[in-house]
């Protein structure tokens, strides 16, 4: 009976994790795409142009960060994948969503400043609450996008 309960709890957590995780992922992607379309007018590049910076323009740091949590199904699937090796497909969408959302948030900040473009963009990724130092938990990923926003001087109040 104990085994049956254990198996039932495991199956229930997987089903809940899969359906709710999938639903929230699709919803998140929809929101990301809408934001990307709205913010597409603003170029984001990783080039520094140290020698070509226009002294007439103003520059300011902008950043956006996001923490995306894994669901039980993704974590389960990834830990099994570790045995066989290969692409951990279940985490790929997690990272992809994190990156795109972080860039969108950074662009939103740049837009609020009236920036016309964003240069020298960098991305940092770190894991939060994963299986570190013997602590178990569902992993989350933090993605931080930061860059230099370029905007015309007349916008400085």
């Amino acid at each position: 009976m104990e085994n049956l309960i254990g198996l039932g709890i495991l199956a229930a957590l997987l089903v809940i994790g899969y359906f709710f995780g999938r639903r929230s992922e699709l919803k998140h992607y929809k929101k990301i795409r809408q934001q990307e379309e709205k913010l597409a007018y603003m170029p984001v590049v990783i080039g520094q142009w140290k020698n070509e910076l226009d002294p007439q323009q103003s520059y300011e740091l902008v950043h956006g960060s996001v923490v995306v949590g894994s669901d039980y199904f993704k974590t389960f699937a990834s830990s099994i994948r570790q045995i066989f090796g290969g692409n951990i497909a279940s985490f790929e969408t997690l990272i992809d969503r994190g990156r795109r959302e972080a860039i969108n948030r950074m662009k939103l900040q740049a837009r609020a400043l009236g920036a016309t473009k964003v240069i020298n963009m960098r991305l940092e990724t770190s894991s939060i609450g994963s299986n570190q130092k013997g602590k178990q938990g569902l992993p989350s990923v933090e993605v931080h996008a930061y860059a230099t926003a370029v905007y015309p001087p007349e916008l400085i109040s």
Binding site: Y18, R33, E36, E37, A40, Y41, F73, K74, A77, I80, R81, I83, F84, N87, A89, S90, E92, T93, I95, D96, R99, R100
Partner: peptide
């Protein structure tokens, strides 16, 4: 103005198929 292409950075296959094979 261009929107990035979808599913370049992630596999578009249904996760259940892969998962069942592994289990």
């Amino acid at each position: 103005q261009r929107i990035p292409k979808e599913s370049v950075n992630y596999t578009n296959e249904h996760p259940i198929k892969d998962y069942i094979a592994m289990v």
